[in-house]
Amino acid sequence: MTPAPPSFLDVPTLLERSVPKPRPAWVWYGMIAFAVVVLTATGAAGQNPQLKLVVRFFGGLAMLGLVVAMAWFTSHVVKQQRKEQQRVEAIEELVQLRRWDQAAAMLDSMLAKPALTMGARLQALVYLASVLARYHRFGDAIAVQNYLLEHAEFDAGTAHGLKLMRTMAMLHEDQLVDADRALGDLRRELPESAGLALIEIYRDVKTGHPAEAIEIFHARAPALRAQLGHRIADAYALVARAHDLLDQNTEAAAAFEKATLLSPVEELCRRYPEVAAIREKYPAAVAPSEAA
């Protein structure tokens, strides 16, 4: 019986296969070979003065060969690593441009082989988590984020971003207890974070506490605007849903219009299934026909 081929973006397989392989220490082998050439040439020349010129000639050639080989090898390694870094940068651009299918295909092929550097692998895994969340594979996204947070050291900003993404994924997966604990940790870590406020708003909308969601939105509005950029559309969409749950239809319509002014309805409904419930109820903002 032949084993079933691994599925697309299979997380355990990609995590296992992308681990960089220890490379043979070619530089050390080169150094040893260099030392052997030097010693042999010196020894042979000392024992047989007649052979001195021949030994010196071939010794010189060997040394020249070694110098050229080491230079070629170093340049080859640097080129390979640069290529890998360029692939990671290309994936980053695809994620930013929301070309998810292309990013997923590149990640699948890149992580199926051992990475050359740990840095490139970790960066690729961060993007993998984003792509998985986009495909609503939140369980897999959490697995990647847990792996990253447990096995690597990131700067404070990146670690916070990863934790925010993981908490959001937990909420989508209805892991409410874990999400609540994660929110507590995030609050202690960076209470001013707009990402944290957005997750709290989502939690309150999801768990049926719309008044609290609206309260958080108004209390944190300046930070949300300063830090989220266009993703403030998410906050408006969730607040629209919160007002709708409270039967405050005028406020809900106003918030929904603002949300759809910044982001297409399909995108918002994809991100938050709860918003889909109001998409037919309130009119979306009208965009110029070319931009719609």
Binding site: R225, I232, K258, L262, P288, A291
Partner: peptide
């Protein structure tokens, strides 16, 4: 003279900054 674009973009800016 593209009033629709001007209005749409201006309102977006008001929400952003």
């Amino acid at each position: 003279g593209r009033a629709e674009w001007a209005n749409w973009l201006r309102r977006r800016v008001e929400l952003l900054v």
